[in-house]
Every structure is written in structure tokens, then in C-alpha cells.
């Protein structure tokens, strides 16, 4: 598996990361290097092996249905560049 410059641009866009044209070539090489490295894994025979979703031999922890959190609007908004009436304010996004 490998990527090309178009795929690099697409991934950057999906992640909303600004990538300049001159960076694309370098990133393309780096990502392909990583993919080649990971590709080693495909030499392992996994026929008949269940995919694992976790390596921890334990049951998922669960919480009781009780409200124990919230009411901390100042903490939630502490890092917001712009806030108004306890809302986050962001550049207009509309369909």
C-alpha cells in the first residue's frame, strides 16, 4: 500500500490540517516510508485468527446511570479562543 500526493492532500483536508504544496512531496515520502515499514506485518499468516479489538484480558468497565459531572462551563470554555453567553464561537459553518 502506498499514497500519492493527491491522497496526502485529501487526508490533510479531511483532518483540516493546512498543508502547503511544498510540504506535500516530503510528507508523501514520509507516509510511504511508514507504510512500507508497517507492510512487514502482512508477511504474518493470520488465516483463521480473529481480529482483536483489545489486548487487555479484562471486561469493559461500566458506569452506573447517575449524573456525576457537568456544571463546569468555565472549565469547558477555558481554552475557547472566542466565547459568548457560554457558547463556543467559531467561524460560520453552515450547509
Amino acid at each position: 500500500m502506498s499514497v500519492d500526493p493527491a491522497v496526502v492532500r485529501r487526508i490533510a483536508h479531511l483532518s483540516r490540517i493546512a498543508v502547503e504544496d511544498k510540504e506535500v512531496e516530503r510528507l508523501n515520502g514520509e507516509i510511504n516510508a511508514i507504510l512500507t515499514f508497517v507492510e512487514t506485518l502482512s508477511s504474518v499468516d493470520v488465516a483463521g485468527v480473529e481480529p482483536i479489538a483489545s489486548v487487555l484480558p479484562m471486561q469493559m468497565k461500566k458506569r452506573a446511570d447517575v449524573v456525576t459531572d457537568g456544571g463546569i462551563v468555565d472549565d469547558i470554555l477555558a481554552n475557547a479562543p472566542v466565547r459568548e453567553d457560554n457558547y463556543f464561537v467559531v467561524p460560520k459553518v453552515v450547509e
Partner: peptide, 8 residues
């Protein structure tokens, strides 16, 4: 109220 029912 806005952002009141929000945890970290």
C-alpha cells in the same frame, strides 16, 4: 443552559 451538561 449552554455547555452546562458537559463533562471534560
Amino acid at each position: 443552559a449552554p455547555n452546562d451538561h458537559v463533562s471534560l
